[in-house]
């Protein structure tokens, strides 16, 4: 299936949808992280080198931690996202949708060395492109996925209008369609909205006893009715 949405079922029996992140946003996040690390590397060197050999020792240990544990610490303590991933709205999760733990995070980040081989993440890229969940080798072993963190969507405000009861019975998806259309009206030009609304004309023939008004104002009214607005009595 050419779809990047994965559903996972919770033990309560409901499904949660996760949107998997592909190679491009992940590569960008990695570049951003590399940049941050390079800056830290340089600044800390300038700082520690003033303390002679002692400072260099501390610096080398710091560099070691930066190389191997920078992603691990952020993934475990910052909701699964390094600063780079944060900036691109990505997060690492366990396969079952719960936050990534220590051992999984360590595994996926230690295996980066192999994903990086032969150079510039060639193995990792192949793996991401071949795997249906966009997993690099580290993700396969650690059972983790990288997902787009969904931003809270502003509830769609319907344009103001008088609620109109539906003259005919419509199925749920059809009602949904009308609500979605009404919510889009403010972002369309009036002419385009009229034009889209007229497409509904073609469906009208099937209903005999009553007709749906297919002008924009009436459709907004139906939408208001569907979401539960009632004529103030």
């Amino acid at each position: 299936m050419l779809d990047t949405v994965r559903t996972i079922e919770t033990p309560e029996g409901v499904n949660i949808r996760l949107r998997l992140a592909g190679p491009v946003p992940r590569a960008l996040a990695y570049l951003l992280d590399s940049f941050i690390r390079a800056v830290v590397w340089l600044v800390s060197f300038i700082f520690f080198v003033r303390f002679g050999n002692f400072g260099l020792g501390i610096w080398l240990i710091g560099i070691f931690l930066l190389e191997w544990f920078y992603p691990v610490l952020f993934e475990v303590y910052a909701q699964g996202a390094t600063p780079g991933k944060q900036a691109l709205g990505l997060a690492v999760l366990q396969d079952d949708g719960v936050p990534v733990g220590w051992s999984a995070s360590v595994v996926r980040n230690l295996l980066r060395t192999v994903d990086f081989l032969p150079s510039f993440y060639a193995f990792g890229l192949c793996s991401v492109l071949l795997n249906r969940d966009f997993k690099r080798l580290g993700d396969i072993v650690a059972k983790t996925i990288v997902v787009h963190r969904s931003k809270p969507r502003v509830p769609q405000k319907l344009p103001p209008g008088r609620a109109l009861p539906l003259p005919i019975g419509l199925s749920s998806p059809e009602q949904q369609l009308i609500v979605a259309f009404a919510a889009r009206v403010p972002r369309l030009t009036w002419d385009r909205a009229q034009e889209l609304a007229r497409i509904l004309d073609s469906t009208n023939g099937q209903h005999t006893h009553a007709t749906l008004h297919t002008d924009v104002v009436s459709l907004i009214g139906y939408a208001q009715h569907i979401v539960g607005e009632r004529e103030p009595s």
Partner: peptide
């Protein structure tokens, strides 16, 4: 003593990286 410290940093980084390589590969 300060030379020791520098070597500590070097050993930590170098040896553990070798260990991680042995594992990951």
């Amino acid at each position: 003593a300060d030379q020791n410290f520098k070597m500590l940093g070097f050993y930590v980084r170098n040896n553990i990286s070798i260990g991680f390589q042995c594992f990951a590969s």
